[in-house]
Design a protein around this nucleic acid. Structure first.
Length: 257
DNA sequence: ATGTCGGAATTATTCCGA
């Protein structure tokens, strides 16, 4: 079974690109972020043609998350309680025997912006939400765009960017709090010394200059980790495909027994 | 080059957010 996360940067603009990737990689569950559309605009039929059912938590213009699965995902949480004003950024559903959550963590903009403080608060709320889980040993996945570089190895230029947004001690402390609820960054566990990125700015040829960040993660409980066979960042799909523009994020996936 | 995208507001151009 293959489970994936992908910030698609606008599902209407990315639909054919995403469909091409689904045909090629055949994931079983996918968390999507940055849909940038309302629920009523979600292209259920286009995914149904490929054998996927979707659960959606969208909003106009910005944010928005969804879960694709081979059987209809059973929604258990829509939005992060207490943080609704920050937008549609969390969706949980039971799918294929997993408790599967996908998130789009607030970007924060910069250290002077009020959104930075709100990002930290959002992450505190997320940690409390997961710390209160009924069964910490159940098979659960928390995936998405976290907008944090957990360590220097996850940044193309940690020296120059030390203390900058995505790299601050406060954000990294929140990262440790989230993972401290029993959720491990599976890709990193399998590739402890590898530098690889999941996001590259569209500007300035960042992708070809290898100027990226690893900010997209699949976190899993021990019950899931025991089943892991592999983890990949699908860098090929950050590239233009048959004239279709890529997202600025690559998909990331895990293969489970 | 603060260099590119996607979306919204308004109608090809400007703004926001990332």
């Amino acid at each position: 079974m293959r489970i994936a996360t992908w910030n698609v940067n606008g599902l209407r603009a990315r639909l054919e690109f995403v469909r091409a990737w689904l045909r090629e990689r055949k994931p079983d569950i996918v968390g999507l972020q940055e849909l940038k559309l309302t629920d009523d605009k979600f292209p259920h039929d286009a995914f149904a043609e490929l054998g996927y059912f979707a659960a959606v938590h969208g909003q106009k213009s910005w944010n928005g998350v969804a879960i694709l699965a081979r059987e209809a995902p059973q929604v258990t949480q829509c939005g992060l309680p207490g943080q609704e004003e920050m937008g549609a950024r969390l969706l949980s559903a039971d799918a294929a025997g997993l408790s599967f959550t996908t998130v789009y963590v607030p970007n924060g903009k910069n250290l002077e912006h009020e959104d930075y403080t709100r990002k930290l608060a959002w992450l505190d709320t997320l940690t409390a939400h997961f710390a209160a889980r009924q069964d910490p040993d159940a098979p659960a996945v928390l995936c998405g765009d976290f907008n944090i570089c957990p360590t220097d190895l996850d940044s193309w230029n940690a020296q120059q960017l030390r203390g900058a947004i995505f790299h601050t001690p406060a954000e990294r402390e929140r990262w440790r709090s989230v993972t401290g609820t029993g959720l491990e960054d599976v890709w990193r566990a399998l590739h402890p010394d590898t530098q690889a990125f999941s996001w590259w700015d569209y500007r300035g040829g960042a992708f070809h200059r290898k100027q990226g960040l690893r900010i997209d993660f699949l976190l899993a409980t021990a019950a899931v980790r025991r089943r892991v066979q592999g983890a990949e960042i699908d860098r090929e799909w950050r590239k233009k495909q048959a004239g279709l523009t890529a997202s600025d994020h690559a998909p990331v996936w895990l293969d489970l027994e």
